[in-house]
């Protein structure tokens, strides 16, 4: 079975493996954003193992930008799962002289399409790539994951306005709508709901899905691929998804993972593989 023909059970299992590897790396580093990584598990599994044209060294690859750069631990886990970096390297996360910096650095980790970290900027970089694809007559796409709290940054709306106005159809924005941000819930911090009509009013097609359902994620990306309008996917996710004591708890945004919690979490996740 080639990667692109992967079935839904395997995609689910990839998402569990990504979570486990993310926690291993963060536990080893004793630092890193857990909740914001785990909520993206199924989205990244589907993108990198099913949806995106993404082969090592291929100049015609789709582009992927993690605008919410703090969620990078699970993206490193993706590259380990793809076999592009070793497990040993994954476990250098956040260590001195590691290529696996606390936030994505494309100048030292060569597989990234953008370094990010200061929030709000990824979609604009995605526009640059998307315009270049059009100039080059390439049919490649740009996928950009933003956080829900990140929508508080004004630049997100500058970019949304531009894409909507110019009807750019080779960018897919995915909102990891996990409903929590650094200190508290998004609602308690700055309640900007509803989100959908804001994007629609800028000319976007908005697809609202369960961001942990492989079925719904794949069908949303298929709509994007056949769509000739700007497309945003609101992926409703659970912060810390997969580990019950981390789910919907804002403190697990970047809380320190001790041995007992780490072992409990891994045990829970391992029981979620579908055999």
């Amino acid at each position: 079975m080639t990667r692109y023909n992967i079935d839904k059970v395997l995609l689910h299992n990839v998402s569990i493996s990504l979570r486990i590897k993310t926690l291993e790396a963060i536990y080893r580093a004793q630092s890193g954003h857990i909740g914001s990584s785990l909520s993206m598990s199924e989205i990244l599994a589907c993108l990198f193992f099913k949806i995106m044209k993404y082969d090592k060294g291929n100049e015609n690859n789709d582009k992927f930008i993690l605008s919410k750069g703090h969620g990078v631990p699970i993206l490193y886990a993706v590259y380990q799962e793809l076999g592009w970096i070793s497990m040993d390297e994954l476990l250098t996360l956040r260590k001195i002289n590691s290529k696996l910096q606390g936030h994505p650095d494309m100048t030292i980790f060569k597989y990234f399409d953008a370094g990010t970290g200061a929030l709000g900027q990824g979609i604009s970089i995605a526009i640059g790539y998307a315009l270049a694809f059009k100039l080059d007559n390439k049919t490649s796409n740009v996928f950009c994951v933003i956080g829900d709290g990140e929508m508080q940054e004004g630049q997100i709306w500058e970019a949304a306005m531009y894409i909507g106005s110019k009807k750019i159809d080779n960018i897919c924005v995915i909102i990891d709508n996990n409903k929590f941000q650094n200190e508290r819930s998004v609602k308690e911090t700055l309640d900007f709901y509803p989100v959908k009509n804001k994007w629609e009013s800028f000319g976007w097609d908005c697809i609202d899905i369960n961001g942990h359902s492989v079925d719904e994620i794949i069908s949303a990306f298929n709509i994007f691929k056949s769509n000739n309008k700007p497309t945003v996917i609101i992926a409703n996710t659970i912060k810390g998804s997969g580990v019950d004591f981390m789910e919907n708890k804002s403190e697990w945004h970047s809380k320190n993972l001790d041995k007992s919690n780490y072992e409990k979490a891994i045990k829970q996740l391992e029981s979620k593989y579908i055999k």
Partner: peptide, 13 residues
């Protein structure tokens, strides 16, 4: 801000 990001993306392309 958007202009700066777009320029960055074009430069990386």
């Amino acid at each position: 801000a958007n202009a700066i990001g777009i320029a960055a993306g074009l430069g990386l392309s």
